[in-house]
Design a protein around this nucleic acid. Structure first.
Lengths: 212, 212
DNA sequence: CGGTATCCAAGCCGATACTG
DNA sequence: CAGTATCGGCTTGGATACCG
């Protein structure tokens, strides 16, 4: 039932990390939770291909490992522990590295994955002079985004009193941000449109790696 | 025979990274190579528990993915590509994170793993005033280490004209560096002993995480 | 030394069905 | 909604033996 998690039996920190988050799907579960807590069904929706069976087991393992915690409050939602949240910058780095892979699976990008991609490709130097708080509405998901002093923070949920609201979908945002089109198409904006457009220019398309 | 590598089929950068280095043992293979190239048998020795079977397959996959390359020169040794080498800082971070896990498998630490642990726990601020080049002899392995301007670099192999040579074994070095013993025991030094001892104080024991 | 061949056990995948 | 139970089919992983 509970299925003991197999270990590398290696005291090295890397092996110990992999004992906890190295199983298939584990790190993607963390990706799903890194922008905020989620419920089981939403996790499943974000992880196409993972059966409820495996997902449930991964959640139990991550919980046992102190990476994930069931939301103390009310309902059955999962969230990262403080320690689990420390994986955030690591995921961002890993995502940037992986984005330079030559293999590009076709398929839709989930809203959460898109937001992490924005974190990965954020260019602090371009943001030096921009300060904005905005809400990004992406396929029925909402993200509260703040850019200040060359830092960007993203959290799932509404942004109170944003300077600008951007309303779009993943495919469009992707093109607008990483595409060569200078003019954003199909990106709705309400509020301070000028800063909204400036925000869309803070990201750099990852360069393919040389080692094909 | 060639076994197509299974993919998450997710265009997200994290998933694409995991397509390449997310299989069991893959990231540990990278750990083995991150300090310099190695031969098949030495890889196997560093990865206790991995059968030659899987190791061979992982190497083929990593090679196909452009992460690892067979040494063009002469013999059958494996090395990281430039792109693969970009995983180095990520591994160091991951190792630090994992070292804070509450689960600590017993067993010997390999020399390479020990050196990566040193990279993980290196404290730049403590090294601000130290500049030293040294050779660390660890259980028949030699590492060329340089500390300069708050940076440390480690490469497997001999250091030409080192300021100091440190001769010890993994267990002893571990105690000396992470233990509370102020005085290093059983750590042999030849050359500039003063700077050798200073070097041993550049590292901090990882603090256990609060989320048991 | 540098792997491949073989075999077996365990785990995952995916579907479906079921329960509180 | 939030999972657990069950099941077949298949893929991996692990151990050992073996060969150039």
């Amino acid at each position: 039932m509970s299925s003991a998690l197999r270990s590398y039996g290696d005291p090295c920190g890397i092996a110990r990390a992999l004992d906890l988050v190295g199983e298939r799907w584990s790190l993607l579960v963390v990706r799903e939770l890194v922008l905020g807590s989620k419920r089981f069904t939403d996790l499943k929706a974000g992880l196409t291909g993972a059966s409820p069976n495996v997902l449930s087991q991964r959640l139990r393992e991550l919980e046992a490992g102190g990476v994930v915690r069931r939301s103390s409050e009310g309902a059955a939602t999962y969230e990262l522990t403080d320690w689990g949240r420390e994986l955030h910058p690591l995921l961002v780095q890993l995502g940037l590295w992986g984005a330079r892979s030559s293999a590009k699976p076709k398929g839709p990008l989930s809203p959460d994955a898109m937001m992490v991609a924005l974190e990965s490709t954020f260019q602090p130097t371009r943001a030096a002079t921009l300060r904005v708080s905005l809400e990004l509405q992406l396929d029925e998901q909402r993200y509260a985004v703040r850019v200040d002093r060359g830092k960007m923070t993203v959290v799932r949920g509404a942004m109170p009193a944003p300077d600008v609201v951007i309303d779009t979908d993943v495919a469009t945002l992707r093109k607008s941000v990483f595409g060569h089109d200078v003019e954003p198409q199909g990106v709705g904006m309400r509020g301070d449109v000028k800063r909204g457009r400036a925000f869309l220019k803070l990201f750099a398309r990852p360069k393919p790696n040389p080692d094909a």
